[in-house]
């Protein structure tokens, strides 16, 4: 890496750190690129040499956080024990606990997926392929272990769980629900679905 690249990377790092804090404390819509630059101690122009827009800054901030979350998920999933319902509850609880460390940031990301503003590369909410994949694996493993009816299409179950998962973030947005309440709700919802997917006794 030459000097210019090193400097650009340092600027990028400072902008991302400043933006993450401002989006969380002040809010995404309320934060201007000028404020991000000032907090990062760089010129406004330097921000735009690294990012095309505020939406791209948000998208990068989220990507970094998702990498952290997936790291946690990869460490935890091999150690999951118990019924499929228990395992599903643990995976969702991990997400709630992680995202509520910075709830405003997460909500801004969801809202940005619906935004008309150009430059946002955020994935529409609920279509996060990693979480979906993890949940699907969990259901398929349940079918292999025998506590999920093998005749069912796992994707049908995954769709329903993902929709329930989204509702719990609305609780965070509207009622300031914390991770415990979200996880407790999700557990009830998983239990309800599980009563339908457990194999029919002969």
């Amino acid at each position: 890496m030459n000097l210019r690249q090193t400097q650009k990377e340092a600027t990028r790092r400072r902008v991302l750190d400043a933006a993450r804090d401002l989006f969380e404390t002040v809010g995404y819509e309320e934060t201007t690129v000028r404020e991000i630059a000032s907090q990062a101690g760089v010129a406004v122009g330097s921000v735009f040499t690294c990012f095309s827009s505020k939406a791209e800054v948000l998208s990068q901030v989220m990507q970094e956080r998702l990498d952290d979350l997936y790291g946690e998920l990869d460490r935890v999933t091999p150690h999951l024990r118990g019924s499929t319902a228990d395992r599903l509850s643990s995976i969702f609880a991990l997400h709630f606990a992680f995202e509520t460390r910075r709830t405003q940031l997460f909500l801004a990301h969801i809202a940005a997926a619906y935004s008309w503003r150009p430059g946002g590369s955020s994935v529409p909410y609920g279509r996060n392929p990693r979480l979906r994949g993890t949940i699907r694996d969990c259901v398929v493993e349940g079918q292999e272990r025998g506590d999920v009816d093998p005749a069912l299409d796992p994707d049908m179950i995954v769709d329903t769980l993902m929709a329930a998962y989204a509702w719990n973030y609305r609780l965070a947005a509207w009622e300031n629900a914390g991770p415990e309440r979200m996880s407790a709700n999700m557990e009830q919802q998983i239990a309800l679905v599980a009563r339908g997917f457990s194999p029919v006794p002969n």
Partner: peptide, 12 residues
Amino acid sequence: DQIRVILAGARR
């Protein structure tokens, strides 16, 4: 499909 999954547990 979603309705079927949500109702499944209540049919038993």
